[in-house]
Design a protein around this nucleic acid. Structure first.
Length: 560
RNA sequence: GGCCCCUUAGUCAAGCGGCUAAGACGUCGCCCUCUCACGGCGAAGGCAUGGGUUCGAUUCCCGUAGGGGUCACCA
């Protein structure tokens, strides 16, 4: 076989040599140890949790080392492409602080392309792939397999994979193998015939591996692995001339200068293909990090890969549920690096971007998504925010998902901010909510729109006691009192109706009293907030103001 | 089914030949306390399994089991 002639027949329009192409993409001028990483999604939908994971790693590793983090859109499968998905992806990622240096940057006029190693969309790189495809043919490392249109249609019509039952794998594979070996022996004349008849062809790699032989390989996350050599003549170029993932991966990551390939462990089985391809092409193999999948539990209680359709997968769901991006990022960090929490406890004021992210600390096994943990992390993050920051985020969230509440918040920023300031800022800040969606339930009573007077008192309390306590409170209440004076007055009210003023005394001998000052506080709390639980009553009353407090107490008295 | 990866409590995890096997979340109890939240203290709960190697295995090796992934002209 004259490979040179074959190459010319298959790629007559390719005139560039690999060397000429390489010259267009010189090595990047970067500091020692700088990592070049990428996020390479296919634009088939929204970003899900399993995508934010590797992209965060890539972003951290690149930016922590003074390197480059870029976006490459893998749109080689037109059938699956979803309109507008790429843009949504970029915006969602940006929302979580994952910003690119090349490929897509968010500028003043929205999303713009940037960088000298493009194009950054695979659909625009066909000419590049063809240069290297031609070279492989010239080297006798790739060959065409022609298909008639009828065969192609049949292939598209049936879902081949679904038909093949587990039992049939063996048989099917040997059949496939025979077919593959026959296809390798195509002659130049046959090629000419097919081309003349305008038959489409795929380009397949000529595999020289033996799966019985294992290649030792070190993955940065998984450690030492044994990879069986590849013996499959996998497809490089589809019949439309667009590359498959494997081929695009090799050409793109080589030309774009990727130093660390970060991807899910589902790619591990095809690693042998990639090793072979890089060798055939004479490319230096990048470092690989195959990261474990995030799992979920299925109905049977087994772990399953968190997939797009699962609850909690779509990152937009987190926005809807009211999780602040900072909280999600922090949770991700705890999953990525086991020592993150420890570091954070020692550096509570530092942003997560200051954390020295360490590849060695990454887990090689998949973890289950845990809402309990997310909520805990989230509460902590929120408790460290300023009242103003909380206010702004809650307002923005509510404006989008609870317009009525949002409008109330927006109408009086000072009032709302004062509410969020309760118990905030000290050494032991309150942690009342993990999501913005919980806020209304927590502080809705501050707004007359969400407050109703109702007798929520326990049956065991004599209504006369409650009336007496509320009346006593109204008589002595003065909004200018400081906290101690205020509480002394409550105690006085308690005493006047025969309730204990000292809790220790009361607990030691509860039968000696009709109730305690705690009960009196509760009488007030229900009248003023409509709830059995609330933050500190003094603070609540300070914010509500004299008029509203007195009115609510009076209303309770008339409705009792 | 073949191949590959994984396996410490309900969850996330330290551990890297000798420890009463850290810590965090969750659960439960107690304390603090005007309720809640916070905080403090405490409890329950774990090295999948069988063989080796070794004076000694959670740790190293082999097998078994379980789980996951993959086997497309999808990524």
């Amino acid at each position: 076989m004259d490979y040179q002639q074959l190459a010319e027949l298959l790629f007559p329009s390719v005139t560039q040599t690999p060397e000429e192409v390489e010259a267009l993409y010189p090595p990047r001028q970067l500091p020692e140890g700088a990592k070049v990483t990428r996020f390479a999604p296919s634009p088939t939908g929204f970003v899900h949790f399993g995508g934010l994971f590797p992209s965060t790693i890539g972003e951290r590793l690149a930016h922590q080392s003074g390197g480059v983090f870029y976006l490459r859109i893998e749109d080689t499968d037109a059938k699956r492409e979803v309109e507008g998905a790429a843009e949504g992806l970029i915006r969602t990622l940006a929302h979580y602080g994952v910003l690119f240096d090349e490929g897509a940057v968010i500028g003043e006029n929205g999303i713009e392309g940037k960088g000298n190693y493009g194009p950054y969309k695979q659909s625009e790189r066909a000419h590049l792939y063809h240069v290297f495809a031609k070279k492989l043919v010239q080297d006798g490392k790739a060959y065409p397999v022609f298909t008639t249109q009828e065969e192609l249609d049949a292939l598209n019509a049936t879902d081949k994979k679904a038909e093949i039952k587990a039992k049939d794998w063996h048989e099917d594979q040997s059949e496939q193998r025979e077919k593959m070996l026959r296809a390798r022996e195509i002659t130049l004349d046959e090629v000419k015939e097919h081309l003349a008849a305008k038959h489409p062809f795929v380009l397949r790699l000529f595999a020289d591996g033996d799966p019985e032989r294992k290649t030792p390989f070190t993955d940065l996350v998984k450690g030492k692995l044994e990879i069986p050599e590849n013996d499959e003549d996998f497809v490089l170029l589809k019949s439309d001339g667009i590359p498959t993932y494997h081929f695009a991966h090799a050409v793109d990551d080589h030309l774009m200068g990727t130093t660390h390939v970060i991807r899910g462990e589902e790619w591990l089985p095809s690693l042998a293909k990639h090793i072979m391809l890089f060798r055939y092409l004479g490319f230096r193999l990048p470092k690989y990090m195959h990261i474990a999948q995030i799992m979920r539990l299925d109905e049977a209680g087994n772990k399953k890969k968190l997939s797009k359709r699962d609850m909690g997968a779509n990152m937009d769901d987190y926005s809807r549920m009211g999780y602040a991006p900072a909280c999600v990022c922090e949770y991700i960090m705890t999953l990525l690096n086991s020592n993150y929490e420890e570091w954070h406890m020692q550096n509570p004021e530092k942003p997560y971007t200051d954390f020295p992210f360490n590849i060695k600390k990454m887990s090689s096994s998949g973890c289950l998504f845990d809402f309990n943990k997310l909520n805990d992390v989230s509460k902590n993050v929120i408790s460290r925010m300023s009242a103003k920051e909380v206010y702004e985020q809650v307002r923005d969230w509510a404006l989008q998902y609870d317009a009525e509440f949002g409008a109330l918040l927006a109408k009086d920023p000072d009032y709302a901010t004062a509410i969020f300031a309760i118990g905030r800022g000290g050494k032991k800040p309150r942690k009342d909510f993990a999501t913005w969606a919980e806020v209304k339930d927590f502080m809705g009573f501050f707004y007359d729109e969400y407050f109703t007077v109702r007798d929520a008192y326990d049956e065991k309390f004599d209504r006369a006691d409650i009336r007496a306590a509320l009346e006593g409170f109204l008589q002595s209440y003065a909004p200018s009192d400081d906290m101690n004076v205020w509480f002394d007055k409550i105690k006085a009210v308690a005493e006047s109706i025969g309730y204990a003023t000292d809790m220790k005394e009361y607990k030691q001998n509860p039968d000696a009293f009709r109730g305690s000052v705690a009960d009196v506080s509760m009488f007030l709390r229900v009248a003023v907030t409509g709830k059995l639980n609330s933050p500190d009553m003094y603070a609540v009353m300070q914010i509500l103001g004299e008029d509203r407090v007195e009115q609510r107490v009076s209303n309770m008295l008339t409705s009792l």
